[in-house]
Design a protein around this nucleic acid. Sequence first.
DNA 1: TGACATTGTGAACACTGTATACATCGGGTC
DNA 2: GACCCGATGTATACAGTGTTCACAATGTCA
Lengths: 215, 215
Amino acid sequence: MYTVFTMSQASRDRYRHGDLRQALLEAGLDMAREGGPDAIVLREATRRAGVAPNAAYRHFADRSELVRAVSDRALAELAEGIEARFDAVPADADPVAHAHGLLRAVGEGYLDYAFREPGLFRAAFTVPADLDRAADPVRGSARGRTPLVLLGVALDAMVEAGALSAERRPGAELLAWSSVHGLACLALDGPLRALDPATVAATGERLIAMVVRGL
Amino acid sequence: MYTVFTMSQASRDRYRHGDLRQALLEAGLDMAREGGPDAIVLREATRRAGVAPNAAYRHFADRSELVRAVSDRALAELAEGIEARFDAVPADADPVAHAHGLLRAVGEGYLDYAFREPGLFRAAFTVPADLDRAADPVRGSARGRTPLVLLGVALDAMVEAGALSAERRPGAELLAWSSVHGLACLALDGPLRALDPATVAATGERLIAMVVRGL
DNA sequence: TGACATTGTGAACACTGTATACATCGGGTC
DNA sequence: GACCCGATGTATACAGTGTTCACAATGTCA
């Protein structure tokens, strides 16, 4: 519940900030974008919002709560990125090709976001979270679909097309997710950091193909 | 190059610590074991060594250098863990089964260490590093074999046994590594954190099977 | 013995997250 | 319209961090 806002535009800028929570979140997103979740610093956020350091505590109980809010937004952005590719998969192909296309869309969208927004990607996942959170529509796309949900849809399509046996379906999300996520981790903070983008992209393609084949 | 040490045992404990570098490293390992790389704090290390905060700077240029030293040790420990399973694979089986066994040994050893020593595992990888470092014998087992090298041996065996085509061999390390590493990431810091160990272990087995099948 | 490099100490700085007390404002009630 | 109250900001302070500078103690070697 947010209180309705009736202050004049002028009085906004004086004492009351207006929407400090949003401003802090935005600052947090900027910092995460540049340096990942560890680069989110409360005081700097208040500084950018032009406000005293402890004003942040009127909107976030804790630094970690700001980080989590940033993480939520990053997760939603990721979901949008995946969904765009997901929805672009041609529907008129044969069922197996279609299912493969969906699965590839999820994997490619995932990796694409990871390398386009490394800081935010890390913020999305290097944060206390659980499976419920990963499936909560609040953190999904505008249509409420999280990456995990989209992956599930793709896998269901695989089963329906006969490209994946029903008994292998349960838990298959974790297998596909792990593979793609691992590459992102290794290439973002890990030992593959120095790998050139082209090689990483090619490896991503091979990885997705491997998952499709091995599931 | 280290200077030879000729002080008496008694005089060691007074002014000169004796082996402060080692003591700091040990303290760093303890802290990382409990809370991962972020839990490594320089001042606390000096405190545990019974020494002034800035004494650390005689042995490490930087906090990050201590973290890296801890990371190196963790990487070596991981290598030992994998190597133990690796060497335990029976050699008299048929070539394909043997190669599969080696690959499974690497994957299982990797995951086993990740869940047995989550803090150290994260310290090993959440640190600036590159591929050279991951293949440097200095950071390997006592026999100088790093996890990456062991994985390479297993994959070579796959090719020799005819279980993996030669043209798919180059870069296959990255595929196998990513898959297994991803599960570890998701289950340690990520959204799978709350997953019960049994499920994680079972997923690990399925994941390795998927890699063997899909490579 | 005396110069010297090594390795420790002391004090300080800038920075962080966070708590406690206080000021200021807007909106709802008599 | 006066008044109180909850919401939201400020001032100040504290403990903790990494890091630096000047200095002291120590062992080594000419």
